[in-house]
Design a protein around this nucleic acid. Structure first.
Length: 136
DNA sequence: GCCAACGTTGGC
DNA sequence: GCCAACGTTGGC
């Protein structure tokens, strides 16, 4: 089981919306590198949901529930079905905090600010838990 | 709302 | 296939 992170603008699609929907097809990603990460997702993998408006922060967790597929209405885009797992308790873990620890220097979230879907290497999980993410 | 950094497009 | 011009993302 692997971890990923997917960004979204909450005014477009928020964690609250995912909680209501329960299940969604994560879509609208066209950047080739981000699409590759979507393609590497497998059933059972976990996805941190990250909001990019206002204070950038990790707001929740979703789980991949099936194989991805090319978006039927946009061949350059790729879809992955996922279900709501949880919304983290506030205060959310922010990008600022993540940068301040100094332990995420090679994390794509820090290195490639415009990448909207990425892997979260296992080595970062303990530090994310330490910052307050409840992964149980 | 600005703008740096990055990605994409299209003319050559 | 290069690269200038343009468009977009996301942090601030």
């Amino acid at each position: 089981m692997k971890y990923f992170l997917a960004k979204t603008e909450p005014s477009g699609y928020s964690i609250d919306r995912l909680e209501k929907d329960r299940v969604t097809s994560w879509n609208g990603v066209r950047n080739p590198q981000a699409v590759n990460f979507l393609k590497s997702m497998q059933k059972g993998d976990m996805v941190f949901i990250y909001h990019t408006e206002g204070q950038s922060c990790i707001v929740g967790l979703a789980e991949v529930i099936g194989n991805g597929r090319v978006d039927p209405i946009d061949a350059k885009s790729y879809l992955v079905d996922m279900k709501f797992i949880k919304k983290f308790k506030e205060p959310f873990v922010t990008l600022k905090q993540i940068k301040q620890t100094g332990k995420f220097k090679d994390f794509r979230l820090v290195r490639q600010s415009r990448l909207s879907v990425m892997d979260v290497p296992e080595e970062y999980l303990p530090e994310l838990k330490y910052l307050g993410l409840d992964l149980d």
